[in-house]
């Protein structure tokens, strides 16, 4: 045997140990699973809620409220979307999607029985607020990522003190989950406040931005968790209103959006200052991102 054959399969010890761990999860994190559309409900003129079920016989896709997945439509592409369903019934995976681009238009055009690829869940979830007051402020499509949190809080209502929801949309026709909003309000144990920018002849609710509604959400404890989901400018204004009410900025949480592509912090597209939104977020304590949100083009 020639001496040189000794060299076959030699390894640099520096990374061998880490590699042994790593190879066990070869691309699993980025490998989509086939899902099938189970049901479809029109929410507004351009927004639908789709329920998916795994088509590979695998386990349900368990998730934390606030996490997102990557949805893939064959031949069209892939987008990040927050999960909008019940975390305690993950066998049905719900996404509420607004048709704004090529992929979301294709997703909105799916019908029950259609096949799709889903990978995830990715990212951080909303904080645990058990034993505390929970205030939720959402704008527009931003109600979708907090819906799992609301469903979970209402399923375990006795574990919280005050629970309040302030929701603003552009018009009555663009409100999501209207029958659910009615049902939540009818329970009496969650303070539901809804406003629209522009009313219509039959609208009897509030008109205007969501910020003033924040003052109507009651808190019983000094330990209040507030979560905000909506356009960045709305989240900044609402966060300041919450701070004015005495809620500490590290008890306020926001969900940010950037160009999430890989979902696992390795492609760089969603970098926002020191964070990769896909793994360090999308949910951040407002105290961590307040300064950055004030600097443009980041």
């Amino acid at each position: 045997m020639p001496e040189s054959s000794y060299l076959i399969c030699t390894e640099s010890p520096d990374v061998t140990q880490a590699a042994a761990v790593a190879l066990a999860g070869l691309h699993e994190e980025m490998l989509p699973r086939p899902f099938r559309v189970r049901s479809k409900r029109m929410e507004t003129i351009d927004t639908v809620t789709l329920e998916f079920e795994a088509a590979d016989g695998g386990p349900p896709l368990s998730f934390q409220p606030g996490q997102f997945t990557m949805l893939y439509v064959f031949g069209v592409g892939e987008v990040p979307l927050s999960i909008s369903g019940d975390p305690e019934a993950p066998g049905v995976l719900a996404h509420t999607v607004r048709a704004v681009g090529a992929v979301t238009n294709a997703i909105c055009a799916l019908v029950p029985g259609d096949s799709i690829g889903i990978r995830g869940p990715y990212g951080t979830g909303w904080p645990h607020a058990q034993g505390k007051d929970l205030l939720i402020i959402a704008g527009g499509i931003g109600l979708a990522p907090v819906r799992p949190l609301i469903l979970n809080a209402l399923a375990h209502r006795d574990e919280y003190f005050c629970v309040g929801l302030a929701y603003g949309s552009r018009s009555p026709g663009e409100l999501l989950y209207t029958s659910e909003l009615e049902a939540w309000n009818a329970r009496g144990d969650i303070n539901v406040q809804v406003t629209v920018d522009h009313g219509n002849p039959t609208w009897r609710g509030d008109i205007g931005v969501v910020t003033p509604l924040v003052r109507r959400l009651r808190c019983e404890t000094d330990d209040t968790i507030a979560v905000i989901c909506g356009p960045e400018v709305m989240m900044r204004v609402v966060a300041r209103a919450l701070e004015d009410r005495g809620i500490a900025s590290n008890n306020i949480y926001v969900s940010l959006e950037r160009n999430m592509e890989c979902g696992i912090g390795l492609c760089g597209h969603c970098q926002f200052g020191k964070d990769f939104v896909c793994t360090d977020g999308p949910v951040f304590p407002y105290a961590d991102v307040a300064y950055r949100l004030g600097i443009g083009a980041q």
């Binding site: 590699a19 761990v21 790593a22 999860g25 390795l266």
Partner: peptide, 20 residues
């Protein structure tokens, strides 16, 4: 970045661990 982060770049890790 690619081996010791929360998620691992499997292709890099495989090539790197075997290189001299």
């Amino acid at each position: 970045v690619l081996v010791e982060s929360r998620f691992v770049d499997a292709a890099y890790t495989s090539a790197r661990s075997r290189s001299l």
